[in-house]
Design a protein around this nucleic acid. Structure first.
Lengths: 227, 227
DNA sequence: GATTGTTTCAAACGCTTGTTTGAATCATAC
DNA sequence: GTATGATTCAAACAAGCGTTTGAAACAATC
């Protein structure tokens, strides 16, 4: 019990402090101080700071992506082979994340903020791990969206997914960035309203008219066949 | 000359390294090493690391925002009091930024990436400075958008501005995040195509149908009058 | 209740950080 | 060419970093 308690307390404190100050700028002394455990406990339970960081991500991310796949499964089962509405697909992918982010008590909110900023520029020792966790999920959701939006090429869907991740990341980034755009005019405490706003924005972007590209007009740019 | 040379070399090296490793994780030894100047040169020319950071931002941001205001001025002058098309407004605000980001030789690309990640979570000693630089500009652009989109309330416009900044930030964040969504499927080297994609996405989001909020349906949530 | 294995603790390790120092070097003017 | 001020340099500073250590405290087993 004491063991689990210490491990969990370290993970919770680390998650929150990483969110606040960044991965590299957070010191083990801050973490162990906040968790009220001894400094050496991190190296005892996790081996190193880097492994602690990976564990902070693993703990939540596995759950998050499994959940996304499960909900997409049941959506596809219900549709029975027919394409699903784009709004429903987005509601699964981002809804699960935003629901986790709305759980401010359990630290989910903190984690989603951390994920957004780490995903943007992951240190090399988490990048591979992050890619592993995401590729399968993103593949499934891309396929579903391609099916749902026959007019939009797969490449464009991936780009718009990327943009949507950015919008969500900023939406969850907390009050700092928000205060720069809008002093005190905006209130991000209402998670449900934020969800509605973000969803309508993203859906508008996802279904926007295709951009006109100067280069090869319609066909995808293809690399030469290997010699 | 030697002075200006050293100062400029430090600023350039710092800008690039801050982008690559983050503000706090970049050391003065890395910076002075890359700039091929003595370690003490930073403290001699800038006083401290914090003031160097502020100067890195000031150098580009002042130019960027002045440019935005100038282009909006001439747009409004040409319109002669009539509302401007939303696409034109976005093209000024984000176009100036993306044009700077397209200048990979001069370091503009690096700076815009840095700005996107710092804007998201600014350290306290740059937050105030960043807000100062932005409030006037954002006020002008918000006003122009409110005029251009009479159906969209000002609050919603600010939110969508926030989301658009997130989309742009991710769009410029480099290949790291992109490789997670799409292994090698996407190519961000074509700045013009990226601009077109991002612009159509953002315009779609900006003009999306308004979200239906459960709370007070139309009137803005107002805090109670102070006792 | 001694024994064994796990967890905690205070203290120290070697190393890197931002900053300071005082002498050496440079440029410029008399 | 020598004096003056600005700039560069190698070296050191205290402070903080992640990690290691060995003993103390605890838990469970016989």
């Amino acid at each position: 019990m004491a063991d689990l308690d210490t491990r969990a307390r370290i993970l919770d404190a680390a998650e929150s402090l990483f969110t606040e100050h960044g991965l590299e700028a957070t010191t083990l002394r801050q973490i162990t101080g906040a968790a009220a455990v001894n400094l050496a406990a991190v190296n005892y339970h996790f081996g190193s700071k880097e492994e602690l960081i990976r564990e902070v991500f693993r703990r939540r991310l596995t759950w998050l992506n499994q959940r996304r796949l499960l909900e997409l499964d049941s959506l596809e089962k219900a549709a029975g082979g027919k394409p699903i509405k784009p709004s429903q697909i987005l509601e699964v992918f981002f809804g699960v994340a935003l629901k986790l982010a709305a759980d401010s008590k359990g630290g989910g909110r903190s984690f989603m903020r951390l994920l957004g900023q780490t995903y943007r520029k992951p240190p090399e020792f988490v990048r591979g791990f992050l890619a592993e966790e995401y590729t399968a999920v993103l593949g499934r959701f891309k396929a579903a969206l391609v099916k749902a939006l026959p007019g939009v090429p797969g490449e464009e869907i991936l780009w718009r997914f990327h943009f949507m991740m950015g919008a969500m990341s900023y939406a969850l980034s907390g009050t700092d960035a928000l205060h720069i755009v809008a002093e005190d005019a905006l209130d991000d405490s209402d998670a449900e309203a934020l969800y509605a706003r973000l969803m309508s924005f993203m859906l508008g972007g996802l279904r926007a008219p295709l951009p006109t590209l100067r280069g090869a007009p319609a066909k995808r740019p293809r690399s030469k066949v290997a010699a």
